[in-house]
């Protein structure tokens, strides 16, 4: 990994963790996911993480735009982007550094939910294979949302606009496989393929298919690529 990417990533992480942002969003994330998880757990009376993996993609819809909205729009607003882009660094290094910092923040949040998993494993038998693949799915899902968030943040100076746009894109991708019954037959497989949820539920069921992995990787790549393009748009003649 390039040195520059590491430097950007480190700066971004420090700005998350030196300020209250990281602690606030992680705490809220854990409270909400914990509340949904435990309230369902005692109702269903079953040792399963299905609920947790069902609720986190939904919480991510708010959580991830909240941590990505400032990543580039703030630099645009304050003008610091002008110093960054006149340094001898490549545009994609900036985007990748910020992406990695976001990944680390999301991973911390996801790893902390292991507390629920361990609590549960004390209550009943857990299938460790499906737990592992569920967490892998969450990481893929988070990375995809993150790249969408970075993209919308690179489009505007306004953090709120960045938040709303990334939320909308994610919402549409999330909703696609919930509206299948309203969709004409020949479009069903397309909608299914485009839906983040469909692929997530495949992976979290414990079936790690290359198609699902490729879906996520291409989504991540596409939006990171668009972010780099948006950064370079200042150079359009």
């Amino acid at each position: 990994m390039s040195n520059h990417v590491a430097i950007f990533c480190k700066r971004e992480l420090r700005s998350y963790f030196d300020s209250p942002i990281a602690y606030i969003v992680i705490t809220i994330f854990l409270l909400i996911s914990g509340w949904f998880f435990f309230s369902d757990l005692f109702l269903a009376n079953q040792a399963s993480l299905r609920n947790l993996f069902g609720i986190i993609p939904f919480i991510f819809m708010f959580f991830i735009p909240a941590i990505t909205m400032r990543l580039i729009s703030e630099e645009k607003k304050s003008g610091t982007i002008e110093i960054l882009l006149t340094l001898p660094v490549k545009d994609h290094q900036i985007i990748l550094g910020k992406f990695l910092a976001g990944m680390i923040l999301i991973s911390v949040a996801v790893i902390l939910t292991l507390v629920y998993t361990f609590t549960l494993s004390g209550l009943g038998n857990l299938d460790s294979g499906s737990v592992a693949s569920g967490y892998l799915g969450l990481i893929f899902l988070g990375a995809a949302y993150l790249s969408i968030g970075i993209f919308t943040s690179s489009l505007t100076q306004n953090q709120i606009v960045a938040f709303i746009f990334s939320f909308l894109i994610i919402f549409v991708l999330y909703l696609l496989d919930n509206v299948l019954m309203f969709v004409p037959g020949f479009l069903i497989s397309l909608f299914e393929y485009l839906s983040v949820n469909y692929h997530f539920s495949n992976i979290s069921r414990g079936v790690i298919d290359s198609r699902d992995v490729i879906y996520y990787l291409s989504l991540i790549f596409l939006f990171l690529f668009l972010s780099v393009r948006a950064l370079s748009s200042r150079k359009w003649r």
């Binding site: 520059h4 430097i7 420090r14 700005s15 304050s78 003008g79 110093i83 340094l87 001898p88 660094v89």
Partner: peptide
């Protein structure tokens, strides 16, 4: 640049190190 846009949450030394790394 005009108005010296800087990261307000960083301290001066860290900021100089950040730029030195990128340089």
């Amino acid at each position: 640049p005009e108005n010296a846009p800087l990261y307000s949450e960083m301290n001066v030394l860290d900021y100089l190190h950040f730029i030195m790394g990128l340089r």
